[in-house]
Write a protein that binds this DNA or RNA. Structure first.
Lengths: 343, 343
DNA sequence: GTGAAAGCGCTAACAA
DNA sequence: TTGTTAGCGCTTTCAC
């Protein structure tokens, strides 16, 4: 032991965990070599790889991604911002995003912006502070300053669930206007004449329903009453909205709802009033949530492939982070009208 | 300019973003002083605070939390592990957890373990690699090695949604056994004699339903048939399960479901067969999801305050991270039976 | 109240 | 293929 006299100045700092240095020492190589053995095994000799692998498993070493991220300016962290995770709409997207990222060694950090933009600033600060390799935005960012900050931070941004005319950066979505038009045409073609809307109070649903109303007008149908309910939408507000709607517009024979949950509420209210669906009233939902097919009657609805949105967003961000240039930066994921019994 | 001769070796590394050094220089103080102005403003003079604040807003500086975390060995990151986020059960918990953490300057990183434990190892590695200040586990961690690794990493762990007899560390939950007993008593007291169960295939629901069946037996009721459906539970599987159940046990007059979604499926199937609920069949759900109160008939169910679980978990972890010792490390959040029309 | 020095644990850049 | 050096951007420790 060469501990002769001089005090062993073991620093009190640090986590005390096994570091790459420990592993390297045990394997008899330089730290950088151990690092390479872990991140690009093909670049080291078989012998080194073996020794390092063994040292890792003997020590239980787990790489400190924070330190790695600091050194490489790549955090392998992706932030997802949703209004709230509690609405079932974006769940599939968040789920598939998490999975697709995890498969490639990235993690998801979750941020909830709420439906008001008060917390948005603090949220952005928290996100930018982590230097994520990308941000996935669901729903449009409210404030122009927010958009500016994001751009200024140089973080790749994927906006989803909409096809905005002026994307910040990358975009995965579909046309809400087209949805509105197509559903109006669908109902019109099936002989419905008194169309109505029950909708959550958010930007995207407004796009759909303005287009819906406009298409109805263009087809020569009477004006479309629109009942707005606060976001997030609930079964309860669907029931209440139908009650109000029928009181004011008894002739209504078709309702387009901005979510399947709302549609379920409308159907339950109709049923409890003895109104036949679809005989007397057609109901169309939005989202094709898992329960839609199994309702009685089964729900006709607009299907969005939320999981595909998540996967595509993950791919965009990973490609960008790894320096591969992405060709097309806007993807229209499309939608389809799933025709079932309720309309 | 003292740029005489010697080349200005500007490194090509780094993100190019504004750093604390830039802010400090602009404010005319040392970096450490700028750091203090930002993290503990009370420790610097008013003058310094003013200058630093101004420099921050002029440069648009956002602190690099990765670097801070590396230096302080506190990442201000908390990992949440759920089987899948797509089931509505844990949503409230994840939502309130995210919010409660954000309020205290912590962020949530989301991990999905799936209902099989194949991905669990990779997930744990990814989590530990980020050196989170805490982990919130929902549902028991499957493998003993996983438990060992977590403990070895020295990361505070909060287990939720259950009251395991041998907690890893901290615990926020309720007794599933007690739920089963109480619901059995509830149905028995209302004159039901032929109890049955429709349940998702997970550990916690098994606890509830074994206790439910046992309580029924103890009360002298006939054996309780249990229909298991794969997790995650769906409306569809609820419908199918009731159909099977009635075929095999036509006398059944009460069904306890392991989720509200399952209960909704059971109710819809009953309705489509002309079986009166609650007259001929009582239905009890689990979770008190937001739609439960507005079904027709409204759903009697077991209410768990998922948001309270999230808040308490956040508090546990933050207190631990900030060195404050937590007194009681196990909290029983309780539950209640919400009596509505379906039973 | 303020600052200088020394890392946190890792990887980019350059060299051999 | 492997190693040396010099940071990444921040905060701890210790001194004034």
């Amino acid at each position: 032991m060469s501990n002769d006299g001089a005090p062993v100045r073991r620093s009190r700092r640090g986590s005390g965990a096994v570091t790459l240095h420990d592993v390297a020492k045990l394997a008899g190589v330089a730290p950088i070599t151990a690092s390479r053995a872990l991140s690009s095994p093909t670049q080291v000799s078989a012998e080194v790889l073996r020794k390092v692998t063994e040292a890792v498993s003997r020590t239980g070493y787990v790489r400190n991604v924070l330190a790695g991220g600091l050194a490489s300016t790549r955090s392998r962290l992706v932030a997802a911002v949703v209004p709230t995770i509690a609405g079932p709409v974006f769940l599939q997207t968040v789920q598939s995003l998490t999975e697709a990222l995890a498969e490639r060694g990235y993690q998801l950090m979750l941020g909830q912006s709420g439906y008001v933009n008060s917390r948005e600033d603090a949220l952005l600060e928290a996100i930018i502070g982590r230097r994520p390799d990308g941000i996935v935005l669901t729903g449009i960012l409210h404030s122009p300053e927010g958009r500016k900050r994001l751009l200024a931070a140089g973080i790749p941004v994927v906006e989803t669930w909409d096809l905005t005319p002026t994307p910040l950066d990358m975009l995965v979505g579909f046309s809400h206007v087209e949805v509105g038009r197509r559903v109006a045409g669908f109902l019109h073609a099936r002989g419905r004449r008194h169309l109505a809307v029950v909708a959550g109070d958010d930007e995207r649903s407004r796009l759909r329903h303005d287009a819906f109303a406009e298409a109805a007008r263009a087809a020569g149908l009477p004006p479309v009453p629109i009942k707005r309910v606060p976001a997030p939408t609930t079964l309860k507000s669907g029931r209440a909205a139908l009650a109000e709607l029928l009181a004011e517009h008894p002739a209504v024979d078709a309702v387009f709802c901005s979510s399947d949950l709302l549609a379920l509420g409308v159907m339950i209210e109709a049923q409890s009033r003895g109104i036949d669906v679809p005989g007397r009233l057609a109901v169309v939902g939005f989202g094709d949530l898992e329960f839609a097919a199994d309702l009685q009657p089964s729900l006709t609805t607009v299907r969005i492939d939320g999981a595909a949105i998540g996967r595509q967003a993950a791919q965009f961000i990973v490609e960008r982070a790894e320096g591969r240039q992405v060709g097309e930066r806007v993807v229209d994921i499309g939608f389809s009208i799933v025709e079932r019994d309720s309309a």
